[in-house]
Design a protein around this nucleic acid. Structure first.
Lengths: 341, 341
DNA sequence: CTGAAAGCGCTTACAG
DNA sequence: CTGAAAGCGCTTACAG
């Protein structure tokens, strides 16, 4: 009995390996062999196949291949936001390293919503990615749980996640170094613009670095000197407003991101507070912006592209079967002092 | 006779629809029906299935589904570079629109190499994307050919491609408007920083807009006033250097991108040429940078996010079977005049 | 309301 | 050196 299985209409019929085989006068097996360059194939058969492929514009179905081999050749990369300089640099690094090794990347975007991180991990799993890189922004329990269930190569970048291979920036020491640098220039009253603590790397570690540097030098911190923003220019602007309208104004500001630092710069300019004479400002991130703003912003370079590359290397190692369950890499950084201090 | 088909080792065995069916005590058909919510399923069967899915953490294989249905639910997006503000805004717009309609996006990156555009189109086809959006940077013949062979929903953004549904910025008029605005402020000697003509939109149309505005107002253009860069800050800097060291220096500069305009600003600052008193500067792109640089850069907003949204809508329409072979959409723009003029 | 079976497009162990 | 056939994990027309 013949049944017609009616597939979606209007779908162009792709040429398949079967068509190529027929045209070349060989079996599908042989076509597969020449395309994947494995197994013995006579010179003649090979030529016929290549010719047919060429003429028919044959493109093998990655899905069929993945399904059969359990390898997709793609690594999923989960970004908090697609639009940031940091993310793009990291992705560039990842892509370079991965492309050299024959992997592609599939980008997804959480729009900074923690629940989307989990959703995206599942999504990537359903697409059978061979590994996942997460640019992490938090460390909540449910996320950790989901990662553990994932059971395939996984590397987190930006936060140290318990039990997960992680590549992290040296947030604590970077902030510590900035504060010390400011102190060495004679500043005793240093204000701080941070972010909420759910982001452990940026929200907690950088703050601790700052606090500990102050403590080391026996400098006290007025509680009004610690302000918070949400990564935006505006929030930096507003934080600077608060820092400069209290009873005891600091002489320097350490903002945990360049964007907030530049927002702060905007506020200072408006209030005619001269930078660096009346107020020194330091950011973190080495954004393009930091270089072109006036006065040029002092900041710290996290070598994001290199971070991406190292993260990719870790995934690659796991792919090769090396278990790195709990490896941690801490990256280095570099202070860049410019006109704002 | 029993054969063992030996799949890649070390691959965790995913739970499949078959496992779920067994656990729930129903057939795969029924499982499929409840998961896709189509066809009749008894309340009891549904509950059993959902329970099993939950307990087993079952995630359906997107590949198997795509293979069977010929629909992947993903739209491929080809970007010239992942790192640009423009690209990220466009992607945000695309993603919003597409997500609302149940599509995901798969991003690829050409690193500005034209041959990679073609390569990426093929790649996306092999991954069975339901449609492709190309942020186009050139219009070479081979590219057009490849697009035509693609034979599935396709929209180009940024360049008008012959025979391809395209969404374009109003490059000609934007440049024209800038020049006229400068002229209306009394400038008669306007310099130009452009890019090579392989990028028709940016390289040709913006230059023509500028030239035609000058012509309309009977202003002649000294050939030294037309300089070229390659989208980088540095090239803008260097172009400005040439513009200010000739025999007849212009009193204003129109740079076709913000980055080059800001590079130019850097050069002017170094040479102590005051902006806007001695030299007005205008860019295009409304980058974050433009707002925060000093003096704040005048520029034109292309509403990139909206462009992304409209592009996505066009893909969506094609997906619904509407043929739009040759539709063209020209987007609007808005001049933003700030301190640099 | 439910299930057996075909088929999507590949790869690969096996037999020749 | 080559091919027939099984099987990857789904969906769906058909029969009950």
């Amino acid at each position: 009995m013949i049944r017609l299985v009616n597939l979606a209409k209007g779908v162009k019929n792709m040429t398949t390996i079967k068509d190529v085989a027929k045209r070349a006068g060989v079996s599908r097996t042989t076509v597969s062999r020449v395309l994947n360059d494995n197994g013995y194939v006579s010179q003649e058969a090979r030529e016929q196949v290549l010719k047919a492929v060429q003429e028919m514009g044959y493109i093998p179905s990655a899905h069929a291949k993945t399904m059969r081999t359990k390898r997709s050749g793609v690594i999923g990369v989960i970004l908090p936001r697609i639009s940031t300089e940091t993310a793009s640099r990291v992705v560039n690094g990842i892509e370079q390293e991965l492309a050299e090794n024959g992997y592609q990347i599939l980008l997804t975007n959480t729009q900074l919503k923690p629940e989307k991180e989990i959703e995206n991990i599942k999504l990537l799993r359903s697409r059978q990615v061979d590994g996942i890189i997460l640019l992490a922004t938090n460390r909540n329990e449910e996320l950790l749980q989901t990662i553990k269930e994932t059971n395939s190569p996984f590397v987190a970048l930006g936060q140290e996640l318990e039990g997960v291979t992680s590549v992290v920036y040296d947030d604590y020491n970077a902030a510590f170094s900035i504060a010390e640098s400011l102190i060495s220039k004679g500043h005793q009253r240093i204000g701080f613009i941070g972010v909420q603590e759910t982001d452990h790397a940026v929200g907690v570690l950088r703050k601790e670095g700052y606090k500990d540097a102050m403590k080391k030098h026996n400098l006290s911190i007025d509680e009004e000197w610690i302000q918070y923003g949400d990564f935006t220019f505006e929030s930096g602007y507003e934080a600077a407003e608060r820092l400069t309208s209290g009873t005891s104004m600091p002489s320097a500001i350490l903002a945990v991101t360049d964007r907030m630092a530049i927002g702060a710069l905007g506020c200072l300019k408006e209030k005619d507070i001269r930078v660096p004479e009346d107020m020194a400002v330091f950011g973190i991130g080495a954004s393009d912006l930091s270089k072109h703003v006036t006065p040029a912003l002092s900041t710290v370079d996290y070598f994001n592209e290199d971070a991406g590359r190292q993260t990719a290397q870790l995934i690659l190692k796991q792919l090769k079967g090396k278990s790195l369950e709990n490896q941690k890499i801490k990256l280095s950084y570099r202070l860049i002092e410019r006109d704002s201090v």
